[in-house]
Design a protein around this nucleic acid. Sequence first.
RNA 1: GGCCCUAUCGUCUAGCCUGGCCCAGGACACCGCCCUCUCAAGGCGGAGACACGGGUUCAAAUCCCGUUAGGGCUACCA
Length: 498
Amino acid sequence: MRRIYPVNLFFLRALYDKLPHLELLTGQIMPNFKIVTRFAPSPTGFLHIGGARTALFSYYFARRHGGAFRLRVEDTDKKRSTAEATQAILDGMDWLGIQHDGDVVYQSQNADHHRAAAQAMIESGHAYKCYLTPEEIAAERQKSHDEGRAFRSSWRDGGISPKDAPFVVRFKVPEGQTIIHDEVMGEVKWSNKDFDDLILLRADGSPVYMLAVVVDDHDMGVTHVIRGDDHLINAGRQKLIYQALGWDIPVFAHVPLIFGPDGKKLSKRHGALSIDAYADMGYIPAGLRNYLTRLGWSHGDMEIFGDSEVTSIFELGDINKAPARLDFDKMAFINGEHMVRSAYHTLLSYAQRFFENKNNGPMNCAQMDRLIAALPHITSRANTLIELADQAFFVTRERPIEITGKAKKSLKPDAEVRLRDLHFILSGVKQDAWLDQNILEHLQAYITKEDIGFGKIGAPLRACLTGGAPSPDLSLVLELLGQEEALGRIEDCLNTYF
RNA sequence: GGCCCUAUCGUCUAGCCUGGCCCAGGACACCGCCCUCUCAAGGCGGAGACACGGGUUCAAAUCCCGUUAGGGCUACCA
């Protein structure tokens, strides 16, 4: 099994800080990595659940091969990019537990290089200046649409350039056809006739995405481009640009989009789009990583797994070609499996805010002690942190406890004598014998002596101990509550309801 | 309109490349039983799918063609 971090990465990281930023983009920084992947979100919002999965795939693939996983912010569209969005994405990745290698690369900072590439293509005849006015473009676009063909500018074969007129730089799509061998989709073929003469540089000289990705991926030494399949056609366009520039073409892997539970494209309508929405629903990072990875990727019958397992087997070819739907039931189940497997302080740190929320505020020491004791016993009863807080409620709620619903119905008149007897018996148990098994023996001795079923004492006792909140075995409830608290709750009940 | 991608239980999927081991396996959810002091958990069992139509073949979920249905792209967005 591979190490998550090659040792020399730490050395390289120290090196980064000392280098000017642009050097980072030369791709020579990570010479030891045969495999380099990247996640390249545009900072226009939060970290999307689909983006998170793509990032996860890129991350695992890089780790699998001892490669580097890089993060690049695609902020060439300044109007739509915000610093808050960038931070939200960084925070989302951090929470999910995906660590990128090296510094974050900002695409906008490499604009000079993008322009240089465009210039090189003009010089080599692979790109041209286009002086079409917006009206002329609209007309030509309409015409090409009607004729069922791609956009072509009348300037692609040159002409006498108007003085001082604004122009854009367009890519001159060559004749022929373009084939890529996508790791997920397989062989995909286009006729170049179907590609527009796309814009490389805007009229203000700023680079457009299609150019910037190619240049940046090349500069960063990206070997495997893993992204959403909404980019599939872009792979064809970009291959042409790589060829025009005379650069090596990376391996492409286009992963299908995720759909909502209803099979429709994921949208605001589905509510949970951002990673923190899932955090708020009580999922833990390890669980979400497992679910997201398993959604659209499989390895035999493997369902529950952690990072190290995935890291040892992940291959792009095992990603499914068809889009997958989100299934919250399964997500919860997998999350539950990971909650049980979590180190207990890890679980506690994620669960803390849910406990406090349930408690309507911070907990005191007594509550905290009881909670910590109870945690190992209730975790298997919950699939999300919200459920965990519900399951823990019986132990943290404060006296006097309000008894509600079905629980209240069990407090029939004949229960009073049982509760008084039990209070007496339990009072006699020594502090250091206040343990699940021992308590159970006392309870059983009582029902044997009285010749009654456990139900006769179980229901009312549980009612005054928990108030009707979910709870485990009765004797365990007693142990977890502690003798003093348990007896107190029984007294409260006796005083209030009888 | 043009180009491209996809299609196995309700859902996620295995199998498809290299036809026969598949009257299709696993997981979630669902139903039943067991356990039982509540609710869970756990154990056991059940129902449930090759989108449709043509081919090719002794044999097709698997190969080919078409149909249908979803989806993507078609910006001086990414």
